[in-house]
Amino acid sequence: MTFRILLLAGAAAATLAACATDDVWVDDGIVAQPIAAAFETDPMPGTGDRADDPALWVHAGDVSKSLILGTNKDEGLHVYDLSGAELQFLDVGQVNNVDVRGNVAAASNDEFNTITMFSIDADTGEVTHTGDVQTGKAEPYGICMGEVDDTVLIIPTYKDGSIQIWESTDAGVTLQRSLQVGQFGQLQLEGCVVDDAAGIAFIGEEEHGIWKLDLRQSDSTPEIVDTIEAGNGLVADVEGLSLWVGEGTDGYLVASAQAADRFVVYDRAAPHAVRGVFTVTESEDGSVDAVTHTDGLHVSSAALPGYPRGIVIVQDDANPTSEIDQNFKIADWADIEVALGLND
């Protein structure tokens, strides 16, 4: 059982057995800084575990017209504006995860065992379903995209612990490599994210931890980044992974520790030191409920209206009741920087 203790104000944070500030939670010995939600998307009406994974498309000419894509793993893909209002729904089947590079999006479709492709109109922002790529494997689960050395990559992950690396060109999408990543526990993989500049994919094994893979080496093997046994705040299920990308090698890897309702932040650069843990609480005015049991997430360093340091978008299991009208919550990355002292 997880015991959660709200510490009283007035004592030094270092003396956790005594007291800390009145807005710091301690969960199984891990200090998690509370970050208030800024806004939320419209709900996915209905019951059941529906909302799963978000991705942000940034409009090149007018960032205020940027879009949030969100998967509904029962039905298809939802498209929202930066107020959280729904603009489109594409009935393409049971898509689980989604990612974006440029004006192209890809989703893992475990209903049809495909990579489902979308184009996003650079001017209007209209999202169009452009086709499906048969993966040759059952139930593609997670997915991430990357652009490494001018090569666009699409990486679906699978419940048997394997991944595929596909290359996307104007001529089509072709399989370049398959390999085993999951080594422990139940092997199941889902969340992944590509660091384009570093040429690295980070991949989550739900019951074990986070792996990384060098995408520039055709014979590379996975290396461990963190495990749930290490005591850094990561717990099963290891779910969404995303990157806040700064200048050069600066930036942060963010992972969803689903069972503990929290998020672990690591340095983007090796050795990927843990920088802190946060939760997403209800908004300051109480109009947006707190986040629990997050699956997918997306982090962006793009300067958006009202959010010059970027945002984090996280799936919320309960809105506010578990598995009813699920949606996505958005928090200001600047608040996370302050709470975790990332600019100190």
Rank of each mutant, 00 (worst) to 15 (best):
T281E: 13
A290I: 08
D110I: 04
M117R: 13
A331L: 05
E205G: 04
G142Y: 07
T116N: 10
N232V: 06
D42Q: 08
G240V: 01
E205Y: 07
G341Q: 06
W166P: 08
V148P: 07
M145V: 04
V58T: 14
D99Y: 07
W57Q: 13
E126W: 04
I155S: 06
A9H: 10
L187V: 06
E337C: 12
I203C: 12
S256C: 02
I5L: 15
L82V: 03
E282S: 01
A331W: 03
D170T: 12
I324V: 14
E247I: 09
E206L: 06
D317C: 03
G161N: 05
D132P: 06
Y307N: 13
L234F: 02
T41H: 04
V173F: 03
W166C: 03
V193G: 02
D81Y: 01
V58P: 09
P320V: 04
A60E: 13
T281K: 01
V274T: 12
V280S: 00
N96D: 06
D91P: 08
S287D: 05
G199W: 11
F39M: 00
E205N: 07
Q164T: 03
N343W: 07
G182S: 10
D149R: 11
Y80Q: 01
G182D: 10
G240R: 00
T292Q: 05
K137W: 10
V24M: 08
S178I: 05
T116Q: 15
I163W: 06
L253Y: 03
N72I: 02
D344P: 06
G276E: 00
A270W: 01
V299N: 02
A37C: 01
V194T: 08
E205Q: 13
E147W: 06
Y141W: 11
H293D: 12
I203Y: 09
D53M: 04
D74T: 13
W57H: 14
R216E: 14
W333T: 14
R4Q: 14
S119P: 04
V95R: 09
S168A: 13
D261R: 00
T174R: 11
Q180C: 02
E229S: 15
A236R: 11
L90Y: 10
F263D: 00
D267Q: 07
I143Y: 08
D195H: 02
L69Q: 05
R4P: 08
Q217L: 15
E282C: 00
A302E: 13
T2C: 03
H293F: 10
L340R: 02
L67R: 14
T321V: 12
P222R: 08
K137Y: 11
L340F: 05
L56Y: 04
E75L: 15
G276N: 00
W333M: 15
D62Y: 10
C192G: 10
T116A: 13
L175Y: 05
Q217M: 15
G276K: 02
L6S: 14
Q164P: 06
T130E: 14
C144H: 01
L215A: 05
N343F: 07
H293A: 09
N109I: 02
